[in-house]
Simulated scan of single mutants.
Amino acid sequence: MLRALPLFVALSLVGPALAQDIVGPGDIAVDGAIGRCRGTGPEPGLWACLAEAGVPAGGIAFARRLAEDPVIGGPGLMIGFAETGAVDLAEVLFPFLANTNEQTLFVNGTAGVVQPLALEPQTAGDRQTQAILAAHPQAFPSLRLAVVGHRAAGARQRFVASDMVTDGCRACAVVAMALTAYQFDAGELSGVEALGWIPPALADDEARATALATGDVQALQVALTLRGYEPGAMDGQPGETTTRAVQDFLTEFCLRVEAGLGEAALAILAAPPPYLDPPPCQHRERDARNE
């Protein structure tokens, strides 16, 4: 299945000026701090314990900010960070939560902190999603969101997150993968879109790579969607929207558009997530603008 986002090292990317800079890679909590301080309870001894355990002051301030947030409402320690532009990603461990104790948050935008779990949209109305629901009426997303893709275009950032859809309980069989897009413009959240549920055969990295090699259009649409491109509905039907997304992909990865989806392009598309680094040609353009 799609892999959870590994954010244990900072990713370097030149992007728009930060709307806020409340947390960064230097604020990552040291190993062992959670285990040492979990028994102190949420407050007030937690802060002193974290300081004694060597957690940076910025990391403690971030934990306190989360505890005071009316939506999040609990302290969380940052254990990973990825720099992606005006809005960055922080992997956070909430020591006093049960089922969702590890989450990825959007940070450093105009809002400071945005929790994807609080923004999950209604189930998409596409045919494939509805067919999965018809076959599994009790299916629901398990709220184990993983941000798997990011694409920037100017001041616009598009993040794509995956979530396992299970058949009636969190520990039940996985019957699909839900994909959701979160869009930010100049650091401000501007939209949340349910992209639809995809079957396990396309959610699995190896199976999707095999389908791509055979020219499967739906596998291509899923692969592009995961990277933040917008090929339209993931229904296996080719069209102008999918063609434009392919052209954008080829251009940003320094591949000849007129050559189409050759071996090099398919190899890139078949690589497993996460997809957080900027495409090479897009990165070069940004470097040139900042020289």
Rank of each mutant, 00 (worst) to 15 (best):
M1W: 13
A4H: 13
F8W: 14
L11D: 10
S12Q: 15
A17P: 08
D27Q: 03
D27E: 09
D31V: 13
I34N: 02
R36T: 08
R38I: 11
G41R: 01
P42I: 04
P42Y: 07
G45A: 14
G45F: 12
G45Q: 08
L46H: 02
C49E: 03
C49L: 00
C49F: 03
C49M: 07
C49Y: 09
A51G: 14
E52T: 06
E52D: 13
V55L: 01
G58H: 05
I60N: 01
A61P: 03
E68V: 08
V71F: 11
I72N: 09
G73R: 07
G73Q: 10
G76N: 00
I79S: 11
T84C: 10
T84F: 07
V87G: 02
D88S: 09
A90I: 03
A90L: 11
L97G: 09
T100Y: 14
N101M: 06
T104F: 11
F106D: 08
A111K: 10
L117N: 12
A118G: 12
A118D: 14
L119F: 01
Q122T: 15
T123N: 04
A124T: 09
G125N: 11
G125D: 14
D126W: 06
R127T: 15
A131Y: 05
I132D: 05
I132H: 02
Q138A: 15
A139Y: 03
F140E: 11
P141S: 02
S142Y: 01
L143C: 12
R144N: 15
L145R: 13
A146H: 15
G149T: 00
H150F: 12
A153W: 11
F159G: 03
S162P: 00
S162H: 13
M164S: 12
V165C: 03
G168H: 03
V174F: 00
V175I: 04
A176P: 00
M177G: 12
M177P: 05
A178G: 09
T180N: 00
T180F: 01
A181L: 04
Y182F: 12
Q183S: 14
F184Y: 05
A186D: 15
G187N: 09
L189V: 06
S190P: 06
V192E: 04
V192N: 02
L195Y: 01
L195T: 02
W197I: 00
P199W: 05
P199A: 08
L202E: 06
D204L: 01
T210A: 15
G215P: 04
G215V: 08
D216F: 00
D216T: 07
V217S: 09
V217C: 04
Q218W: 06
L220E: 00
A223W: 00
L226R: 11
L226E: 13
G232D: 06
G232T: 08
M234S: 10
M234Y: 07
E240R: 12
T242K: 06
T242H: 07
V246F: 04
Q247H: 15
Q247D: 14
D248M: 12
C254H: 02
L255R: 04
R256T: 13
V257R: 14
E263S: 14
A264Y: 06
L266F: 08
A267N: 13
I268C: 02
A270T: 02
Y275D: 03
L276I: 05
L276D: 01
P279L: 10
C281G: 08
